[in-house]
């Protein structure tokens, strides 16, 4: 797929308008996973608007974002940085060989305490 088309799709799937961002950085000021991210929430919004999808698709933040929606909750402009991160992650995972976890590895993770909820959500987030 052509790069611009990926950018368009990611924007569409995110359902958020990056142009509304006023670059205040509140999302990144609130983010609990900030220190585990190479590209920060506000940068996801900025880069997607600039069309720099390659950078985003290689970011480790895709797997450290906790999906806690704090950035979405607090944005003064109604932008949803977490939705952009999610849409980029979806794009990565949907590509051929993009699965980050295989069904076969799940059984080995099961122990006495781990709740199904954790396994299902992990699998849903990392496998298409």
């Amino acid at each position: 797929m052509e790069k611009n088309e990926i950018v368009r799709l990611v924007k569409e799937r995110s359902g958020t308008d990056a142009r509304k961002c006023m670059k205040c950085g509140k999302c990144s000021g609130r983010c609990p996973a900030y220190h585990d991210m190479d590209i920060k929430p506000h940068q996801f919004v900025s880069y997607i608007e600039k069309g720099e999808i390659d950078k985003l698709m290689q970011s480790k933040s895709l797997y450290t974002c906790l999906s806690c929606f704090a950035c979405v909750e607090r944005c003064p402009r109604g932008v949803a940085p977490a939705n952009v991160i999610e849409a980029v992650r979806q794009e990565v995972i949907r590509q051929q060989g993009g699965n980050k976890i295989m069904a076969e590895t799940v059984p080995s993770m099961i122990d006495e305490t781990i709740p199904q909820q954790l396994l299902v959500s992990m699998f849903r987030k990392l496998n298409k």
Binding site: C24, G25, K26, S28, G29, R30, Y34, K40, H42, A70
Partner: peptide, 27 residues
């Protein structure tokens, strides 16, 4: 500091102001 504050919370008698420093790209 160019950036917005995400959370203010109390810890050990101090008000901890957590926010973005966009110029230095730090929280």
């Amino acid at each position: 500091i160019k950036g917005m504050v995400g959370k203010v919370y109390e810890e050990n008698g101090k008000l901890m102001v957590q926010g973005s420093d966009l110029i230095n790209n730090e929280q």
